[in-house]
Design a protein around this nucleic acid. Structure first.
Length: 361
DNA sequence: TCTGGGGTCCTAGGACCC
DNA sequence: TCTGGGGTCCTAGGACCC
């Protein structure tokens, strides 16, 4: 193995993060099936944010409706409400521990980060990262090692839990070649189906697919991107510049459908006021407002409008959201409402520089 | 089973302009 | 006289991720 220091991408991913944070403050929950989601009431409309490994053995996982999780859960299962501020704080601690290693840290979410590391022994560095996180937070993590972000991210899955796995051009085909395309980061159920219609089901087949076929099916950017994904190709630059959101949104699924226009108006007003607040706190003007509605049983529409000119006035944001309610279909029961504000970027970067990526590679 | 909330980016089509 | 070609802006819809 390498004697020379080389650049590596490490992907650090906390193990059962949210459940683990909950167990930290309630040690008596250790080893139990812990399910965190919504307000912690499994009779409500909500989904599982994280299930502990013990809960996963019952087939409970992220994204599953709480009602269904309750049916699968054993009697000793514990349902807890999502406590975002606490996870935020734990996440900050994790990221701080990683930054203390003296490397570039690109935060991907509460429980994930890429590290840009130049080292002759990435496994040793990965162990150091795990130890640092554990010492600082008592949380365990898995580290994927790659020669780019795609491979590092996918490598993590093979290291779970608490492990380390290396995935590079050298072992890509051996490790991933026979696997279904849906195992790739950025390929979901829909794309997987569309690929299957072209006889493409494995990573090897995707890698070998003619570019024209993929471009014809998915367009010039995504087609090329999927082809690269099949070969494990992707960006390797880890960027720690601060994240600037393009917009902010607030949405609510109502426990009971809204049935009257008055209810809808009041709800939109409330959501829009929150969004206007979020925007105001950043001091950035809003240039577009969108209204999302989910009609019963589960039909989602989004309507939006660019404002005549960008505004910092919260009242204008609320007014724009309310104006959009004219475009809702009258008489339909509403399950969810959401308002989103798009914000003027401080310094619009060159769009040609953008990489087409899912999940912010 | 009955489906959260907060994000990102891409694509397609129509309008408009030269 | 059966129909340009390109570019940009805007909106809606779709897909994916944590």
């Amino acid at each position: 193995m390498g004697d020379a220091a080389e650049p590596w991408v490490l992907h650090v991913d906390l193990d059962e993060f949210i459940a683990a944070v909950e167990v930290l403050r309630r040690p008596e929950l250790a080893g139990l099936p812990v399910i965190v989601g919504g307000r912690g009431d499994p009779t409500e409309r909500a989904v599982v944010s994280t299930a502990s490994y013990a809960a996963r053995t019952y087939g409970i996982g992220s994204g599953m409706p709480l009602k269904l999780a309750a049916r699968k859960a054993p009697p000793d299962a514990v349902f807890l409400p999502v406590d975002a501020p606490t996870y935020e704080a734990a996440s900050e601690q994790v990221m701080a521990a990683l930054r203390d290693l003296g490397v570039v840290v690109e935060v991907l979410g509460w429980d994930e980060a890429f590290l840009g590391v130049t080292t002759e022994d990435p496994e040793a560095f990965a162990r150091r990262a795990q130890e640092a996180v554990l010492a600082s937070t008592r949380l365990h993590c898995t580290v994927g090692i790659g020669d780019n972000k795609v491979r590092a991210k996918i490598a993590t899955g093979f290291g779970k839990p608490r492990g380390i796995f290396r995935l590079t051009a050298d072992n890509w085909v051996e490790v991933m070649g026979e696997r279904p395309v849906i195992d790739l980061w950025g390929v979901g159920a829909k794309v997987s189906k569309r690929l299957a219609a072209h006889g493409i089901t494995t990573v090897d087949q995707l890698a070998a697919a003619p570019r024209e076929v993929l471009v014809a099916e998915f367009g010039p950017r995504m087609g090329v991107w999927y082809g690269d994904l099949g070969r494990g190709l992707g960006p390797a630059v880890v960027d720690d510049s601060p994240w600037i959101a393009r917009g902010h949104s607030r949405e609510t699924t109502y426990q009971h459908n809204l049935t009257t226009p008055e209810q809808v108006t009041a709800a939109v007003r409330e959501l829009a006021a929150q969004v206007a607040d979020d925007a105001a706190r950043e001091g950035r003007p809003v240039f577009r407002v969108t209204l999302k509605v989910r009609y019963a049983p589960f039909v989602t529409k989004v309507v939006g409008r660019k404002l005549p000119e960008p505004t910092r006035d919260p009242g204008a944001v609320v007014a724009a959201a309310l104006a959009l309610t004219d475009r809702l279909e009258p008489g339909r029961e509403v399950r969810l409402l959401g308002v989103r504000a798009e914000l003027v970027m401080p310094e619009a970067g060159d769009p040609a520089e953008r990489t087409p990526v899912r999940g912010r590679l």
